[in-house]
Amino acid sequence: MFVFLVRRLFQAVMVMLAVAFIAFLMFRYLGDPVNNIVSQDATQEQREEVRQRLHLDDPMIMQYGRFVANAAQGDFGMSYRNSRPVSALLAERLPATAELVLVAALLSLVLGIPLGIYTALKPRGILSQGLQILSLIGISLPTFVTGILLILIFSVWLGWLPSFGRGEVIDIGWWSTGFLTLSGIKALILPSFMLCLFQLTLIMRLVRAEMMEVLRADYIKFAKARGLRNKTIHFRHALKNTLIPVVTIFGLQLGGLIAFAIITETVFQWPGMGALFIQAVNFTDVPVMAAYLVMVSLIFVIINTSVDLLYNVIDPRLRADPTRASGRGA
């Protein structure tokens, strides 16, 4: 287990260094950073002074090292556009995106797994067939279209839910949450549903396919032959085996949720990191883009490492050292 952790961490560090290198290249070589910082009518001396201050004349490897060292401390420099530290900008926007993604992820699990189980156990029922068709629509419609449709129905026609923004938020330390006010929760419903729709259908279809596969397995047949109750067979024996691949896919897709959040945040004008990133792209605000890149990669790496650890908890076969298993496993 210890070796496993060390190996995983080592891989994670390598990935992060590679990502940091790309971010650094963007920062350093996407246009001249000096031009982006000084005003248009700056003198040659002023430019030279900035160049000195930013150590832009040092060898590339040293600049990279400095970039990594700063990034590790959360220092990504100043935003070109707002002239504020990038880390402060990100910290301000993080809660909005985190809450949106969290709710969407929970929704997709809480709805997706039971629906998947239901359609697997009653594959020929009317409800299952209907859900299958609906999920096909959900998986094939672009999310911005469903987002706009949701706004049209629930905000414009029915007027039940707000069509943009986070509503009222309450600050707890540096974290601003929308969970504690009615308007905050109402504002969350449409965007999180739009964001989770793809996940939800994916998880439902995955659970369904896996569950049907597992139900054909020999150990399920043997469990039936032992006269176990259907409930035990379905929810104890089959479900646990079903969830192994679901955990992997969910982990990978959680990263996808953060990436897709850009679209959702744009459609609902949600003040999150995605919206910040779009802004940064519009104004070629390279430090913000670089920081966003590093940040999202970090989240991806953390999620995937946790998924691997979770695997170890679920599947006893991975806990054992394969070379020490008895019998003819090799």
């Binding site: 150990y219 043997f222 032959a225 646990k240 006893p316």
Partner: peptide, 17 residues
């Protein structure tokens, strides 16, 4: 009535002791 099947490697659920 009890039953025993062919393949002992797949007859047992791998996730339970």
């Amino acid at each position: 009535i009890g039953a025993i099947f062919q393949d002992p490697l797949t007859s047992l659920n791998p996730l339970f002791t």
